[in-house]
């Protein structure tokens, strides 16, 4: 018998449970804020044509044609360069917390500007093939194995940026743990055990509680010879423990992402609080492969477990 605090959250309203809001990936390279450069170029070329025809000089027109070629290439060439942009993640961390900054070691094949799209982040300018840190801010709990990155280039002349999306595969899954939310006294109240106080688990140390039959591996020093003689079987002393009984925390997540995040945050807060209090925790979650019951030793492993967990109804 375990000292158990069960907290089951009912599944959310199915109608409201929106699917994950996956922003579509734009493979097509498109110019960014093209009006200014294009309009400027057109005005410049019109001025040039005006000067050429006013002066009647063919050389002005020839220079203008060269400038037109320069501007055309400057405006259009990035559109041909953008599809060739690739970005590789060299190393990525394993753990993160939702809403906090994560740095990915990325390296590009040429100079570009990249901004994480599927998660939050700040733009990063990559100079050539020099590694840099791409900052992303995962907005919510979960396992992130790839990040959609908008890569942009203005090569070779820097006149107009063209961009497209790339999927950046992380070197290892990024477990985005929920934020820790302290639920205050209310939950702590519910967790305060009163019915389980009298059923401590037998442990090796502490006050003597009773005896039990021998199991392999038990030390000879722990044999209760008197009881053995009394029963005819080898009996082992059992002691009583006070604080190191694990708490079993069951996390059932609804399909609604926001509600699930809230619950995960609550659970995380609870786990952190209990771990700080020196208690051991066994966490029961639903992962895509099924139910998982396992102890969590620290907040990192708890974060991973919660990041992996899915709605109970989505398990295979």
């Amino acid at each position: 018998m375990r000292w158990r605090s069960r907290r089951r959250v009912p599944p959310g309203d199915r109608a409201r449970s929106a699917m994950a809001s996956t922003r579509c990936i734009r493979h097509l390279a498109l110019p960014e804020r093209a009006f200014g450069p294009v309009a400027g170029s057109v005005v410049l070329l019109l001025v040039w044509a005006g000067v050429a025809h006013a002066s009647g000089s063919g050389w002005v027109q020839t220079v203008g044609a060269a400038v037109a070629g320069l501007l055309l290439l400057g405006l259009v060439a990035p559109g041909f360069a953008a599809p060739g942009l690739t970005l590789i993640c060299q190393s990525s961390p394993t753990d993160a917390i939702a809403g906090s900054v994560v740095e990915l070691d990325v390296i590009g094949n040429r100079s570009m500007r990249c901004t994480a799209r599927s998660v939050g982040g700040t733009p990063l300018l990559l100079a050539g093939k020099i590694p840099a840190h791409l900052v992303i801010v995962p907005p919510r709990r979960g396992v992130v194995s790839a990040v959609t990155v908008r890569v942009a280039t203005a090569a070779p002349l820097g006149l107009l940026w063209w961009s497209r999306d790339r999927v950046l595969e992380l070197t290892r899954p990024l477990y985005v743990a929920p934020q820790t939310r302290d639920q205050g006294a209310a939950l702590r109240q519910t967790l305060t055990p009163d019915e389980g106080q009298g059923t401590p688990r037998p442990t090796l140390t502490g006050d003597l509680r009773g005896v039990r039959p021998y199991q392999h591996g038990d030390g000879r020093r722990r044999v209760h010879w008197g009881a053995s003689a009394h029963t005819g079987n080898l009996m082992i002393r059992e002691s009583e423990s006070r604080q190191d009984d694990p708490i079993c925390l069951i996390v059932d997540l609804p399909r609604d992402l926001d509600a699930a995040d809230r619950i995960a945050e609550d659970a995380m807060g609870e786990i952190v609080m209990q771990l700080n209090a020196g208690r051991r925790i066994v966490l029961e979650t639903t992962e895509s492969t099924g139910r998982v019951v396992a102890p969590v030793a620290d907040r990192v492993s708890a974060g991973r477990r919660l990041a992996r967990s899915v709605a109970s109804s989505d398990a295979r």
Partner: peptide, 19 residues
């Protein structure tokens, strides 16, 4: 051309050799 190429290089941090 050379100047604009340099300009693009400095836009992206100014490192590396000129292509």
């Amino acid at each position: 051309l050379l100047a604009l190429g340099c300009s693009w290089r400095s836009m992206t941090g100014g490192a590396g050799s000129l292509p």
